[in-house]
Nucleic acid binder design. Sequence first.
DNA 1: TATGAATGAGGGTTCATTCAT
DNA 2: CATGAATGAACCCTCATTCAT
Lengths: 187, 187, 187, 187
Amino acid sequence: MTETVRPLRADAARNRARVLEVAYETFAGEGLSVPIDEIARRAGVGAGTVYRHFPTKEDLFRAVVEDRIRGIIGEGRNLLTAGDPATALFEFLRSMVLTWGATDRGLSEALAGVGIDVEKAMPEAEREFYAMLGDLLRAAQEAGVVRRDVSAPDVKAVMVGLQAMQTYDDEAAKRLTDVVLDGLRPR
Amino acid sequence: MTETVRPLRADAARNRARVLEVAYETFAGEGLSVPIDEIARRAGVGAGTVYRHFPTKEDLFRAVVEDRIRGIIGEGRNLLTAGDPATALFEFLRSMVLTWGATDRGLSEALAGVGIDVEKAMPEAEREFYAMLGDLLRAAQEAGVVRRDVSAPDVKAVMVGLQAMQTYDDEAAKRLTDVVLDGLRPR
Amino acid sequence: MTETVRPLRADAARNRARVLEVAYETFAGEGLSVPIDEIARRAGVGAGTVYRHFPTKEDLFRAVVEDRIRGIIGEGRNLLTAGDPATALFEFLRSMVLTWGATDRGLSEALAGVGIDVEKAMPEAEREFYAMLGDLLRAAQEAGVVRRDVSAPDVKAVMVGLQAMQTYDDEAAKRLTDVVLDGLRPR
Amino acid sequence: MTETVRPLRADAARNRARVLEVAYETFAGEGLSVPIDEIARRAGVGAGTVYRHFPTKEDLFRAVVEDRIRGIIGEGRNLLTAGDPATALFEFLRSMVLTWGATDRGLSEALAGVGIDVEKAMPEAEREFYAMLGDLLRAAQEAGVVRRDVSAPDVKAVMVGLQAMQTYDDEAAKRLTDVVLDGLRPR
DNA sequence: TATGAATGAGGGTTCATTCAT
DNA sequence: CATGAATGAACCCTCATTCAT
C-alpha cells in the first residue's frame, strides 16, 4: 500500500519511452483508431509489452495526451517567463496553431472527446494547464490587451476551436489565427 | 436525365424516414461510430432494412450529414432573403452555434473528417454550401461589416472552429461566439 | 387431394418461362451462387414471383437442371433415331462437350454435387436419362464399336469427366474428347 | 533473399498444423464453402487463431490445396524415380483416382476453379506440378506407350476429368480409369 | 519481463426466404 | 398473382485484451 513507484529497469524504461514516442507519432498522424498491435509493431516490441506499461488503450491515450499537455504547459510557462508577459497569451495561442497542434489528429480527436475524456482521465494535468492558462490570461488582461470578461475556460475553448480549424484547414487556420485573436482584444 | 426515382411504397418510405431520423439523433448524440445494428434496433427494424435503404454505412452518414447541410444551407439563404443582408453572416454563424450544431457529435466529426470525407462524399452539397456562404460573405463585406481579406473557405474554417468549441464547451461557445466574430470586423 | 395441376394463367406461365430462361443463362454463365434477387432483377420480376414458381432456390436449380437434362435426353434420342445408331453414342458424347456443356458452370457444379443432388432431386429425369443412355450404349455395343464391359453408369461417369475437363480447359477438352472416347472402343 | 521465417513457437506451430489438418479434412469432405468459424470450432481454437495463421479464407484454401498438390508432385516424382519410367504416368494417374483424389470435394472444387483460382493463387506449385507432369509424359512417350500428340496440359485436363468422375461415382471411376487411360496409348 | 499467440465479442455486409401492400 | 420491402441468420474479418511460453 506504500505506492512505491519503484523505478523501472533500464530496458523497461527504454521500452516504455519507445512505445510512447511511437504512439505519439502514430496517433498524431493517423488518429486514435490505430490498433495497439500496430503501435507495438512500429515500436519493435510485442503487444504484451505495450499492455504491461499501459494496461488499457485508453491508458496509452492518456499518457500520450498528458505528455503532450505537459509540453504545452511548459511552452506557456516559458513564454510567460522568458518573453513579454503582455503578449505571452497571444504568442502561446499562435504557437499552438503554428507548432503544436500541427495536424495532430490524435490530439484533435481527444479534445473533441473521441476515444477519451481528458477532464476525467487526467485531472492533475488539466489543473496545471488551467493554472498556466490563468496566469497567461491575467498577465494579458493586466496589460490591457485582452478583454476583462474573458475567462480561462473561455481561452481553452478558443484553443480547441483553433485546433479544430487547423485540423480542418491548416492554411486557413494560419491566416485566421490573428483574426480570431483580434476578437479577444478590448474594443 | 431525370433518373425516374419511382416513389417508394408508403411503408418503405416510412421505414426509410424512421431510420434516417434515428440515425440522425443517434449520430448527433453519440458520434458516427455507433453500429448499424444499434441504429436498426432503435428504429425497430432489421439490419437488412437499413442496408436496403443505405447500402453502406457511409451512405447512411452521407444521407444524414447531407440532410443536415441542406438544412444549414436553407437557414443561410433564408437569413439572406428575409433579414438584413448586412448582418446575415453573423446571424448565420450565431445560429450555427446556438441552434444547429448544438452538440451534434456526428456533424462535428463529419466536419473534422472523422468517418467520412464530406468533400468527396457529397460534392454537390458542398458546392451549394460554399455558394451560400459566399453570398453571405459578399453581402457582409459590401455592407462594410466584415474584413475584405476574408474568404469563404475562411468562414467555413471559422465555422468548424465554432462547432468544435461548442462541442467542447457549449456554455463557453455561446459566450464567445460574438467575441470571435468581432475578429472578423474591420478594425 | 386430386393433384389438379391447374394450368397457369397466361401471364404467370410467361413469367415462369422468363425466370427459367434467365436462371438458365445466369447459372450457366456465373454458377449457382448468384443471388435469387439478381435472377429476379434480370428477369424483370419481383423476387416474390420467383419464389411463387420455385419455392426454394434448390427448386430453381432443379428446374433449370431438369430442363437441361431433358434437352440432353432429346438430343440423344434424336441421334439414335435420325442418325447411325452405331455411332450415335460417340456423336452424343462429342456434342455434350462441343455444344451442350460448353462452359456451363451451373451444370458443372450441379454434376459435381455443389448446391444440388441431382439423383435425389429429380429421379424421374435421371431414370429417363439412363434409359436413353442405355439405348445409345446398347446400339453401339451391338454394332461392336464399344467394349462390352462398359455400363450405362460408366458412360454417365465418363460424361461427367468430359464435362469437368471442358469446364477446366475448353480447348484441351475438344482435342481430347476423341482420345478419351477411343478408350471405349474394343481393343 | 532467404526470408528469415523465424520458426513458430511450439504451441503456435501445433495450432497451425491442427487448423490445417482440420481444414484439410473438412474441405475434402464438405467442400470449400464451410465457414471459417466451423473450421475453428472443429480445431478447438478461436476464429482469431485461424485468421492469425491464414489472414484470409483464400489463404487457408491455398495452404490446404498447395499442401495437397505438393504431395501429388512428390508422388509423381517418386514413381518416376523408384519405378519403371515407362509406366509411371499411368501409375500416377491411377494413384490419383485410387488414393489421392478419393472424394476430395475441396480439391475437386479447386481444380474446377470454384472458390479459388489455383493458377493465380499458387503459380509456383502450379509450375512444379506441370514440370513433374511433363517429365512423366516425356518418359512415357519415349517408351512409346503414350501418343505423341498429347501435351502436359492435356494430361492435366484428363486428370481433372478423372477427378470429377471419381467425385461423382467412385466405383465407376475405379473401373473406368484404365479404359480412359487406354485412350492415351498409340493405336 | 518480454513476446506474440489465442481469444472472442462484435462490426459491416449479404442473401434466402417471408409477408404486407 | 405480382411486387419488392423486411427479416435475421450467417459469414468474413478486426482488434482490445489475456495468457502461455
